[in-house]
Write a protein that binds this DNA or RNA. Structure first.
Lengths: 102, 102
DNA sequence: TCAATTAGTCAAAAAAACATGACTACCATG
DNA sequence: CATGGTAGTCATGTTTTTTTGACTAATTGA
């Protein structure tokens, strides 16, 4: 009905992807499952709270899937969901466009 | 060298696209050039300051181009730049993925 | 010349995002 | 049973974003 003032459907997703650390988390998750403390160590300057929120929101948006791994040290892993995987192309496009800036 | 903690190149662009009203402005600009007061009227709840900032930042990022139209009422138009046009696909993808949520 | 429309700016307040440090709880090793 | 690693939560404080309302300034039409 109203194509202008109704919140763009892409907005929520955009917000989820643009929060602090989220692009990095996403990118790391495209390589291999990510883990909380590992992120805390790898992402210098990141803090627990923000990472926890970022991971929770990305799980809520079904970009990441949270699962407990029943192995040796018993831990939690976050892996890219199918929806998450279909966002890889978006990142590729965005990164290509960023290169052009110099 | 460091693929993990260095800020993702897509992040800046993502931030630009995800600010308040920006997705809507972008979308409206894909249909026809947008204007300040027109946005203020169409986007219910939007305020001058935020719109002005959004437009300025989108121009700075070369997503929109600002130009004065030397016509009848003499006004300013914001049109999609080439870079902006190449982002349309990103929005299409994002919207498709949002539909799936229901 | 008065009033409206154009496109904003500015200072300040409110709201949202992010950071800090303390704390919890579970499991494993020595 | 103390130490360290796992994965967080909670209260608080700072910083960034967004909102509010007043104000500016040029152009247009009656």
């Amino acid at each position: 009905m109203n194509t202008s003032s109704e919140p763009c459907p892409a907005q929520k997703l955009l917000k989820i992807l643009s929060g602090k650390w989220k692009p990095q988390i996403f990118k790391m998750a495209t390589h291999k499952p990510v883990r909380f403390n590992q992120l805390l160590r790898d992402l210098e300057g990141a803090n627990k709270q923000t990472l926890a929120t970022a991971l929770r929101e990305m799980v809520e948006e079904d970009i990441l899937i949270k699962e407990t791994v029943q192995e040796k040290p018993l831990h939690i892993e976050y892996t890219l969901s199918e929806k998450g995987k279909s966002l890889i192309g978006v990142f590729v496009t965005l990164e290509k466009l960023s290169e052009g800036d110099a």
